[in-house]
Design a protein around this nucleic acid. Structure first.
Lengths: 208, 208
DNA sequence: CGCATTGTTGACATAGGTCAATCCGTGTGG
DNA sequence: CCACACGGATTGACCTATGTCAACAATGCG
């Protein structure tokens, strides 16, 4: 869901972007990795006719890598404001080629991402809208360590949720209302609070 | 679609499996990477009620890695017969920690996989059944180098295609019939031959 | 305070799923 | 060498989850 974790690398040139500013575009030659210093970004791919799929969100500490060093294979835009440090691709490449530790760390985080994508393929390919939304809420609203509950980032709009889950805003809205009626969540302003994580988890797993 | 490419590593113990034999299971402690020597395998995840999503196929030369070295995060079964070399996870880990070249190579192949998954998220989340099937046929039936056309592996059943694309066998069958009527493909026995790759590609891209 | 953007809700349309019958290819036994 | 049986594949009739279109409500910004 979020991207790779930081290595220690030199603070490259920093740049800031405003709300919805697209700072990296699919099929653009990729020469920089972006390390998020503050704020958030959405990463997405889109089809020529405008259909969009959100690949993930990036927050403070995440790195948006320039994968194969020719093109970015996804686009990214700032959510509200965003500050990133730019790490030149050749720098990281060189680091990987000389420091096994750094390379192994990148490999580990990349693999962790991969496992996340396996789950999302299952979700998008085989789960119902209800199951997907429950999975999303669990993923966003609980932090893995403790069993703590966080409100879902209010910077994430219904459209973002829809584009993340492969649904429409209307469906997301209706399901959120249903979850609310079932007392699984509460909504105040845009923030969503999880009330019953166990039942949500049950929805994800057994299609309740 | 297929997994990572080979490093040179010692020929570990080899094992063979018969048709549909599941040789690696989700949530099983993972201690081996499997390097495919011959035959093919399907990699998948499934839900408790039996819904299944095929993550990818592996062929000769591909490696099925034990990602985070605790559990496999997907299951795999043989398609027809399969022969694999087992590479102990600690061996590869050690190699990665000591040889930056080997580690960088793994990182590269893992990243290539990641890019493939980005595309599949877009496909599963936002493309129609028709577009998905066209994308699948293009992906299977053309090899990137030349513009050569291969028949789709007849070891891949309609159920496999459906589970790969997040559809049902009936839908796949109906669409194949439609493609046949439109002279985009021909079917002989189970093998599917691509007749008009350009038009198939057009379907993938602009939702024709 | 009023516009503009986002979210909610409803009525209706449809892509794709479900269930069921039939077909076809291959393998088997007589 | 043929009948028969079994597992896929195909096709059809029908159903439903989700999308589409449209009206309206709520938020938040200038």
């Amino acid at each position: 869901m979020s991207l790779t974790q930081p290595h220690n690398h030199p603070a490259g040139m920093e740049r800031s972007f405003g709300d919805r500013q697209e700072f990296m575009t699919e099929d653009t030659p990729a020469s920089m990795h972006f390390h998020v210093v503050s704020g958030g970004a959405r990463l997405f791919k889109s089809l020529p006719d405008g259909r969009r799929q959100i690949i993930g969100f990036a927050h403070k500490g995440d790195v948006l890598p320039a994968y194969p060093c020719t093109h970015y294979h996804y686009s990214a835009e700032a959510m509200r404001t965003l500050r990133v440090a730019c790490v030149p691709a050749p720098y990281l490449r060189h680091l990987h080629e000389t420091s096994p530790g750094a390379c192994a760390a990148s490999l580990r985080t990349t693999r962790r991402l991969l496992v996340g994508f396996h789950n999302r393929l299952l979700m998008l390919g085989r789960q119902t809208a209800r199951e997907r939304l429950a999975a999303f809420l669990i993923g966003q609203g609980t932090r893995m360590g403790r069993g703590e509950l966080w409100p879902v980032d209010p910077g994430i709009s219904r459209a973002d949720i829809a584009d993340f889950l492969g649904l429409t805003t209307e469906t997301v809205s209706r399901l959120l209302s249903a979850f609310h009626r079932e007392k699984l969540i509460s909504r105040e302003r845009r923030a969503i609070h999880i009330l019953d994580p166990d039942r949500l988890r049950a929805i994800v797993a057994h299609s309740e």
